[in-house]
């Protein structure tokens, strides 16, 4: 049994969970290769115009998997992954959009993940998946518990300063060189599926590291702390990722070791248009920069902005230091 998982969207949050679950049930898990220009091109040609860049890229990955001789393609219908919070509505329509637009699509496993009120749908669908794969309810439950555990382990790796994409590689058994320590610290925020996908973000994380900066990501902050910070907002943020990002902004804004905050937004992203703006307003004590990417962005423009941002932080710091007398 071959099950395909596209390298996109919630791959960067749940791949260890999905992979463990299906592997435990005896399936072979196939992922598409990391995002490259062909993925972006193929995805843009297939997807509806209104879709944001990460959704288009997801199409590209699905396209690649179509030719992999799969039994099933795993494309869950994500509605909500926690009580009282939601995922962007485009994710809800993913299985339907794929069916309507991708020719030669393998059969989909489109379980509904809606934990906003209860886990009823998820439980029902998990049992359905188990039947499909020929397993009993108890085996399914066991595999699911193991999968949850593995996912936590991966997040634990990410908390040591790796991006989720890197953490997944390490979780998968690869060895990675730790990034060099830089003289600047930059808080980098955005939706994980655009931020951690180096092919989509034009290598943003490595570019910032190359400029001599240590990158602080949401996963390296204490999860509970983030929730507490997010709860200080006058109104609860509707989106799961948006709420965490806002908690991260408020936290990073307070932390002295962080010199500046960069927010990566995708052109055409609904939540970003609000969260990006709010992130800027909540960053009061340090420089903030919003970077917007879409499928035809030039790298030169991004480089100019990043260089200028780092120059500014270094010059600011030099002035701050020169105000202290040398003799202490």
């Amino acid at each position: 049994m071959r099950i395909g998982i596209p390298y996109g969207l919630f791959y960067f949050y749940y791949y260890p969970l999905w992979k463990t679950f299906f592997s435990d049930l005896g399936a072979e898990v196939i992922t598409s290769s990391p995002t490259c220009r062909l993925t972006v091109d193929a995805g843009s040609a297939l997807a509806v115009d209104e879709a944001c860049l990460p959704v288009k890229v997801y199409y590209g990955h699905v396209r690649e998997l179509c030719s992999q001789d799969l039994d099933y393609l795993f494309a869950p219908r994500l509605v909500s992954v926690e009580p009282r919070s939601y995922i962007c509505p485009k994710f809800m329509g993913i299985p339907d959009m794929l069916r309507a637009q991708v020719p030669g699509l393998p059969q989909l496993i489109d379980i509904t993940v809606d934990l906003s009120r209860s886990d009823r749908y998820l439980q029902q669908d998990l049992i359905k998946v188990g039947r499909m794969l020929g397993y009993k309810k108890s085996a399914i439950q066991e595999a699911f518990q193991h999968a949850l555990e593995e996912n936590r382990r991966c997040i634990q790796i990410a908390s040591q300063g790796w991006s989720m994409a890197e953490a997944i590689k390490i979780w998968d058994g690869n060895l990675l060189e730790p990034p060099e320590a830089g003289d600047l610290s930059i808080g980098l925020l955005g939706h994980g599926y655009s931020l951690y996908d180096e092919g989509l973000s034009m290598g943003l994380i490595s570019k910032i590291r190359q400029l001599g900066c240590k990158v602080h990501l949401l996963e390296s902050l204490d999860a509970e702390r983030i929730e507490m910070e997010a709860a200080t907002m006058p109104k609860r943020v509707f989106w799961t990722l948006g709420r965490k990002i806002m908690g991260g902004v408020i936290n990073m804004n307070k932390r002295e070791e962080i010199d500046g905050i960069i927010y990566l937004a995708c052109f055409g992203c609904g939540p970003d248009s609000m969260i990006g703006e709010m992130a800027e307003r909540y960053t009061t004590g340090k420089p903030f920069m919003l970077l917007t990417i879409d499928e035809h962005s030039g790298e030169a423009g991004m480089m100019t902005r990043l260089e200028a941002f780092c120059d500014m932080l270094r010059r600011r710091r030099r002035v701050d230091e020169s105000q202290f007398p040398a003799y202490g």
Binding site: P287, L290, S297, M312
Partner: peptide, 13 residues
């Protein structure tokens, strides 16, 4: 501010 860049913005896409 005081002769150094304190903040900047550029047009987006």
């Amino acid at each position: 501010r005081d002769g150094i860049v304190n903040d900047f913005a550029m047009n987006t896409v």
